[in-house]
């Protein structure tokens, strides 16, 4: 039996210190140890992108990361998007709602976290750049057209100086 490791991870701004088995994936740690169920698991082998989170502001598949690898790092999940008290949706969330960028919604947190990284680095992406960014996220419901529109809408609304 492998010995547990003490890890300290900041998730959505909150510090967590836990003892975990080394083999525990970050996805399972977030979902089951911390109760952050928004990071969904679709394949557990790094293809579908549903579990995408940000580690130190960079997108990563939580199923391809061990919780111990997150020791000392900052993780952001979909739960970080919504305003904590008012519940107001983040512009990316609102854009997905307004442009009907989801159906079952299972893959959506992964798409939105990927979009967050994209728009932080490139506030005005072309359609090709959006496709390139989202190429690692599978959606079985929407056929992607409305997802593309959602990202465009989010970019438009998040541009500096855009009307709130």
């Amino acid at each position: 039996m492998s010995s547990k490791q003490r890890i300290e991870v900041r998730v959505n701004g909150i510090r967590h210190v836990r003892e975990v088995e080394p083999r525990l994936t970050l996805a399972d740690f977030l979902r089951h140890d911390l109760g952050l169920g928004g990071t969904h698991v679709g394949c557990e082998h790094g293809i579908c992108g549903a579990c995408t989170v940000l580690i130190d502001d960079r997108s990563a598949r939580a199923c391809l990361t061990l919780a111990v690898q997150a020791d000392g790092h900052e993780v952001a999940t979909v739960e970080s998007l919504r305003a904590p008290e008012s519940g107001a949706l983040h512009p990316i969330q609102q854009a997905f709602v307004d442009a009907h960028g989801l159906q079952c919604g299972f893959c959506t947190p992964g798409f939105m976290m990927t979009t967050l990284e994209l728009l932080r680095g490139n506030p005005d992406p072309t359609e090709e750049q959006i496709k390139e960014a989202l190429g690692g996220n599978l959606c079985r419901c929407t056929g992607y057209q409305s997802i593309l529109e959602s990202v465009k809408l989010a970019a438009q609304r998040m541009k500096p100086g855009a009307p709130a």
């Binding site: 997108s59 990563a60 391809l64």
Partner: peptide, 9 residues
């Protein structure tokens, strides 16, 4: 190589 999430890690 793969996708951005893969290249990041």
């Amino acid at each position: 190589v793969g996708h951005r999430q893969i290249r990041n890690r």
